[in-house]
Simulated scan of single mutants.
Amino acid sequence: MKKLFRPSNPPLFAERKQSVHKFAAIRDHPFFYRAFLLSLAIGLLVTITVAVMLGPVPIAPGTVWTIAYSHLPGVNGGMAETWSQGQGHIVWDIRFPRVLLGVAVGGGLAVAGVAIQALIRNSLADPYILGVSSGASVAATLVILFGAFRFFGQYALSLSSFLGSLIAMVMVVVLARVGGRMSTTRLLLSGIAVSMIMSAATNFIVAMAPREEGIRSAMYWMMGGLTAAKWDYLTIPALVVVLGTVLLLFQYRALNALLMGEEAAVTLGVDILAFRKYLVIIAALLTGTIVSVSGSIGFVGLMIPHIARLLVGSDHRRVLPVSLLLGAIFIVWSDVLARLLLAPEELPIGIVTALCGGPFFIWLLRRSAYSFGGAK
């Protein structure tokens, strides 16, 4: 009878465990990380090139970069134009700003996801699920439909979105804090509740809009997209994403300590209360700025940091740059699919990311361990 119930293939589990250890050893080697980061950078460059090439009017890669080179300071007028005026307009005025905005949006959402997941020590969290994007959407729709916050001038949309996302994030943290402590379950539930409230507020604002044309554009914007991309819109998102990533990289030790639990972080000298506020402000700044230029795009901050941790480990000194590049590549390709899948019609990019992120979220839920440091 003992032989009957003995596992038939115990070596299989031993081999699987051994292969996991081998991959972890390779993954933790400095050369692997540098090579992987370089390959991601090359992959992003290839992605940008292909994304600019593809469209109703296909353009050769050499022409793409020749046009881009001709617009560099000091070069314009110094080289003969071998492309048509239409090609120059399509590449430089339409496709390049859109693709580069996608790079900033994808990288920023991924970095914001890293910050929020470290904040609540749970890989199921992202700006979309916790209601941060919804808070930014409330303020942004007020600006778009009713011209609110005009005293901010040309920065009304960006600053109001930041304030909306900050308010939503603070609401989530306050609601989840009971007896001086926060559990990840309460954080997730509070985030879902705040997200539903903010979404209802956004829908109410849209329903009260005076113009039908404005309602249609606001609804399309709420589903996320890069259609309004212009060179003028790139400066603020790019600066905020770079600044947010650098600030988080400076605090990578505190981020690593936070994943081990509050007690361990305090033992290592981390001021938990001050550091949580620091993370809340950075996550709100990143999310609000991105929502103001692209609308609400979900699941990027959920998927990309998790994939980055699987590939390079949980050290935030590695996770942050890898997430930045992976998020940029993912959004650019999502935008390519949104443009070409039903051409000449165009899908909102939020639909594409939701189709990818929904199954990924379900897969995370089905796993036995979806949190950091044993917290669930």
Rank of each mutant, 00 (worst) to 15 (best):
Q251K: 15
A283E: 00
L340E: 02
L255C: 12
I272R: 00
F146V: 09
L243I: 14
V114I: 14
F32G: 01
L4M: 07
A110C: 02
A136Y: 07
G135W: 01
I349K: 02
I59K: 07
T267E: 10
Q85S: 14
Y69V: 12
R34M: 14
S371P: 05
F5R: 08
A207G: 06
A14L: 13
E213Q: 13
V332Q: 10
V91N: 03
G135Q: 02
S296A: 12
A148S: 05
A193I: 09
L355H: 03
L310G: 08
P61W: 00
I144W: 03
F96G: 02
E262V: 14
V300S: 02
L239Q: 06
L234H: 08
S371L: 15
G214N: 05
T185H: 13
G135L: 01
G301K: 05
S158C: 14
A118V: 06
S133F: 09
G107D: 03
A25Y: 06
R34D: 06
S190G: 13
A156F: 09
L187P: 05
V99C: 01
G374A: 03
C356N: 09
A115Y: 00
S294F: 02
V270Q: 04
R34G: 12
I236K: 10
M79G: 12
I67A: 07
A140H: 13
I42N: 10
H316I: 10
S323F: 02
A354I: 00
I281L: 12
G179P: 06
R367V: 15
A254W: 14
I48E: 09
D315W: 08
A35G: 11
F275M: 10
K17A: 10
A25K: 12
F5T: 12
E81D: 07
L279E: 04
F152N: 08
A265V: 14
M219W: 01
V138P: 11
S158R: 08
A60H: 13
L45E: 15
L163H: 06
V280L: 06
R27W: 09
A284K: 07
A125Q: 08
I282G: 01
R181H: 11
L72F: 03
V143Q: 01
A24L: 04
E345I: 08
R216Y: 12
E213Y: 11
L249H: 04
A112H: 00
H21S: 12
K2L: 15
S368D: 15
L326P: 03
L258A: 07
S165V: 01
L157C: 12
S371G: 13
A176I: 03
Y220H: 07
